[in-house]
């Protein structure tokens, strides 16, 4: 009985997986960075950092990965101080940077094995873990090919394998699915859910809102280096009652100024052949938006009115979109 209470006490008192307080880092060259960011991620939680390019996602991950020291603020990984005990923290982290690089003249296997051993994994465990991960991410057939012959997506998968092979407690992933084919994206999502179920804390920096919405337990929005909102995807989206998103597919690009001037339209963003209109949910607004597009000379080939997403939440909060900055 005493053992049970001791284990329960240890479980209850276990420090959170990742805790950051007041992280500030400004790049001297550009003046950009992050300002006073605080967040807390629990064991087994998948936490999303969402924001447009330049919002500070990668900068925050640089700090949390111990690559750079912040100007001020502190963070802990599983209770270990990330500024004072960097090597201990590094051993507990799995890291995939936004632009992964490898030794091009070594094979994929040699690269992954090298990193696994640098993380202190012994030979037998490294070979076992890597065999499983190469199979899982469909890279087994290419394991002995030189990395310089890999496609971008294969390089990304290799970086994921390197991040996972040593069995990290906390996983930091920067744009993990960018460049991955659909099957690999699904495999990655399945792996993240499995890891989360086994107690691994996962932080994903991304502006792929569909992925964040389906994977993350909690989401934080970053804008110009500051945290503007935080909550579960459901909470955030449900705060947007009365907002709609109209997606019009056009045959030809148009000047969309006349759409922006329609009453109730918050933001208009061109995405490929689509014109995405974030607007209020009022009677007649779809007809008004269509009228605006037609007046601008647009030839609509498809039209959809969608429920609000995390992107709409961001637009509502900041007046900007996730994808057109920079």
């Amino acid at each position: 009985m005493r053992d049970v209470s001791r284990i329960w006490k240890a479980f209850v008192e276990r420090p959170v997986a990742l805790e950051a307080r007041g992280i500030t880092l400004r790049y001297r060259s550009s003046g950009r960075g992050v300002e006073g960011l605080s967040l807390s991620v629990g064991w087994g939680e998948v936490f999303g950092l969402v924001g447009p390019n330049g919002s500070g996602k990668s900068t925050l991950l640089r700090v949390l990965s111990t690559a750079v020291e912040p100007d001020s603020g502190t963070f802990r990984v599983g209770g270990t101080d990330g500024l004072r005990e960097k090597r201990k923290v590094r051993a507990r982290l799995g890291l995939m940077v936004d632009r992964p690089t490898h030794y091009g003249d070594l094979s994929g296997w040699a690269n992954a094995y090298f990193f696994a051993r640098l993380y202190g994994v012994n030979e037998a465990k490294a070979e076992g873990a890597l065999s499983e991960l190469f199979e899982y991410f469909d890279l087994a057939a290419y394991r002995d090919d030189r990395v310089k012959t890999y496609s971008y997506g294969m390089g990304k998968k290799l970086a994921l394998i390197e991040a996972l092979a040593h069995g990290p407690d906390v996983l930091l992933l920067d744009e993990p699915s960018l460049g991955l084919d659909y099957t690999s994206q699904l495999a990655l999502q399945r792996k993240i859910r499995d890891l989360s179920a086994s107690g691994v804390a996962v932080v994903i920096a991304s502006n792929q809102v569909d992925e964040v919405e389906s994977l993350c337990d909690r989401v934080a929005f970053l804008h110009e280096g500051r945290l503007v909102e935080e909550g579960t995807p459901e909470e955030l989206i449900s705060s947007l009652q009365g907002v709609r998103r109209i997606v019009a597919t056009l045959r030809n690009p148009v000047e969309y100024g006349s759409v922006e001037s329609v009453a109730g339209v918050d933001q208009v963003v061109p995405e490929g052949q689509d014109l995405v209109v974030h607007c209020e949910d009022r009677p007649g607004i779809v007809a008004d938006v269509v009228g605006g597009i037609v007046r601008a000379g647009g030839d609509i080939t498809d039209l959809a009115v969608r429920r609000p997403s995390l992107e709409d939440v961001f637009v509502k909060l900041t007046g900007e979109t996730l994808r057109d900055e920079d």
Binding site: S65, T66, A67, R87, K88, R90, A91, L93, L95, V97, R99, P100, T101, H102, Y103, F115, L118, Y119, G120
Partner: peptide, 14 residues
């Protein structure tokens, strides 16, 4: 320049 050395430095190796 490649960034690979920084990645290596983020392992627990001294």
């Amino acid at each position: 320049n490649d960034g690979i050395l920084v990645r290596v430095a983020l392992t627990p190796t001294s």
